[in-house]
């Protein structure tokens, strides 16, 4: 090789290029395998869900199943609305006023999954323990939610989240 001094640098260049291309190519080839592990189109395409609210009397709650999660729908009484409004958001861990969390005062609609580690809080059934604030109580790690679904006591960092929904008419909503 001593008689062809240029060869080694050309070789190094080609080796480096080939190495870089091979690495990038292998990476690109691995990408589809990783992407395939995400939710499939059927999963992502979970259809919007319409819920008829007319049978739910004030004070009652129902749970619907949407995108694999329970959705709490609660028809609140006047007294409950007043209780939810009678809180200074600034004193809360996750400050939100009740009006930010509802489209119509009487209807509280939240995703029934505790923001701590994903358990389902109790409080939907009349006999359930509803926690110190009269909303929901997560028995896994002891989080208390109020009648607006806000975290008031216990380890959960956030309020119960509000799903995307719209009122189609007076007493029908569409989730998603």
């Amino acid at each position: 090789m001593t008689d062809r001094p240029k060869q080694p640098s050309r070789r190094n260049f080609l080796f480096l290029t080939a190495g870089a291309m091979g690495t990038v190519g292998a990476g690109m080839a691995a990408l589809p395998l990783i992407r395939a592990m995400g939710p499939s189109r059927t999963e992502r395409a979970a259809a919007p869900l319409e819920v008829d609210l007319s049978p739910i009397a004030p004070g009652q709650a129902i749970t619907v199943f949407w995108r694999g999660k329970p959705i709490f729908i609660r028809h609140r009484t006047e007294e409950e609305i007043a209780r939810a409004r009678d809180v200074d958001p600034a004193t809360l861990r996750d400050p939100q006023s009740d009006s930010e969390r509802v489209h119509k005062d009487a209807w509280l609609i939240v995703i029934g999954v505790c923001t701590h580690f994903g358990c389902i809080p109790r409080g939907q059934k009349p006999a359930d323990r509803k926690g110190d604030y009269g909303g929901w109580f997560c028995s896994c790690h002891g989080s208390h939610f109020d009648i607006s679904g806000r975290i008031r006591k216990g380890p959960a960092p956030k309020n119960l989240s509000v799903p995307d929904y719209v009122f189609i008419d007076e007493d029908r909503i569409k989730l998603g």
Binding site: P32, G38, S40, R41, T42
Partner: peptide, 13 residues
Amino acid sequence: EAIMRDVDQGWMI
């Protein structure tokens, strides 16, 4: 068939 049609890049794999 769901792999072919619904899974991302499933047809390729």
